[in-house]
């Protein structure tokens, strides 16, 4: 097991009050595995990742829970200790390749920066050329002398991936890496990520809101809603036998590939306000099958198979109704 997140709670303290962004999220990640995380804006998917790397700024704080990486607890590390891990063992790439690179430094300089920070023993120039060629930016030696604005969006995202991979991390976190890119470029970047996994056994967490991206590359899927992990399972379990009404709704709200002209079935309503999170299930307000108990009590996680878990009162209907 490479990564184990247990009952993570993260909040942001704003002028308006405490925003409970992550409310008890647990999941695991194995070596060489690609985990897809889906959820809407504000569901807590990015904040969960930022918590792992302790990139929460001055307003964010991990309230409770544990993050174990290669057996080592990360939540109580000091700033310096986390910095030793960031970029070397865990690397992250972001959604917008236009703003994530420094416009006044050459690509080569930015590539080598993390080798220097982590004092990796190797020929920096050689390693940078090698990794740039790996992601298809050629001729690497010439292109290293260029600045970010001299590259297209797809190329910049490749450079970001090269920067993330240069220290050979065990875990690559990719937060919406293809959202800003066109579909033909997206296909290239996703292929590249699969190749990295094949060749280096890198574990990858891929955050996206595009169910198609998840279906194509993830081994397992975690579905988040309102700061909770509402369902997780293999991609076959999630796509062919979804257990949570939110997952179900999400899959139905995209056009049916068999019948494109059919009227869409949206999930009505709006996501919950995390300043005043609902008492019960976070999805209850929008759930077509909500019962009385759903508005009052948070459902426990129900184990459906070795790999499949979901938190929904419908899954334990009889027992639940007995207790009401």
């Amino acid at each position: 097991m490479l990564l184990e997140v247990k009952d993570l709670h993260t909040s942001f303290f704003t002028q308006a009050g405490e925003v409970k962004s992550v409310n008890g999220v647990s999941f695991e990640l194995n070596h060489g595995e690609i985990l897809g995380i889906v959820g809407e804006s504000g569901s807590g998917k990015s904040v969960t990742m930022l918590s792992i790397l302790k990139l929460l700024g001055t307003t964010g704080k991990i309230i409770s829970g544990s993050v174990k990486f290669n057996g080592r607890e990360l939540t109580n590390l000091t700033k310096n200790e986390v910095e030793d891990i960031r970029g070397k063992n865990i690397a992250m790439i972001f959604q917008d390749p236009m703003t994530s690179l420094n416009p006044v430094l050459t690509v080569g300089y930015q590539l080598k920066e993390s080798l220097k920070r982590h004092k990796i023993e190797c020929d920096y120039q050689k390693r940078a050329v090698e990794i740039l060629e790996r992601v298809g930016i050629v001729p690497a030696e010439t292109r290293m002398k260029q600045y970010p604005h001299e590259f297209s969006g797809g190329q910049r995202q490749r450079i970001m991936i090269a920067m993330a991979m240069i220290c050979n991390p065990d875990l690559l976190i990719a937060d919406e890496p293809t959202t800003a890119l066109d579909v033909t470029v997206q296909a290239q970047i996703l292929d590249l990520m699969k190749e990295l996994r094949e060749n280096f056994n890198t574990s990858i967490i891929l955050i996206t809101h595009d169910l198609g991206v998840i279906a194509g590359v993830a081994d397992r899927v975690l579905v988040m809603y309102g700061g909770h992990a509402v369902e997780q399972g293999t991609r076959h379990e999630i796509f062919y036998s979804p257990a949570h009404p939110y997952t179900h709704g999400l899959l139905r709200s995209v056009p049916d590939p068999e019948n494109f002209k059919e009227r869409l079935i949206p999930i009505e309503g709006q996501p919950p306000d995390l300043l005043n999170p609902p008492k019960g299930c976070p999805f209850a307000m929008r759930c077509p099958q909500a019962m009385k108990i759903c508005l009052e009590k948070l459902p426990a996680e129900k184990i459906l198979s070795d790999t499949h878990r979901a938190s929904c009162w419908l899954l334990e209907k009889e027992e639940a109704l007995k207790n009401v």
Binding site: V183, T184, Q186, A187, D210, L211, G212, V213, I214, A215, G216, R235, H236, F239, Y240, L251, V254, P257
Partner: peptide, 14 residues
């Protein structure tokens, strides 16, 4: 090429 690149929300077809 464009149409072949559309991500499909279906693991087997994908």
């Amino acid at each position: 090429s464009l149409l072949s690149s559309i991500p499909m929300p279906d693991p087997i077809k994908s």
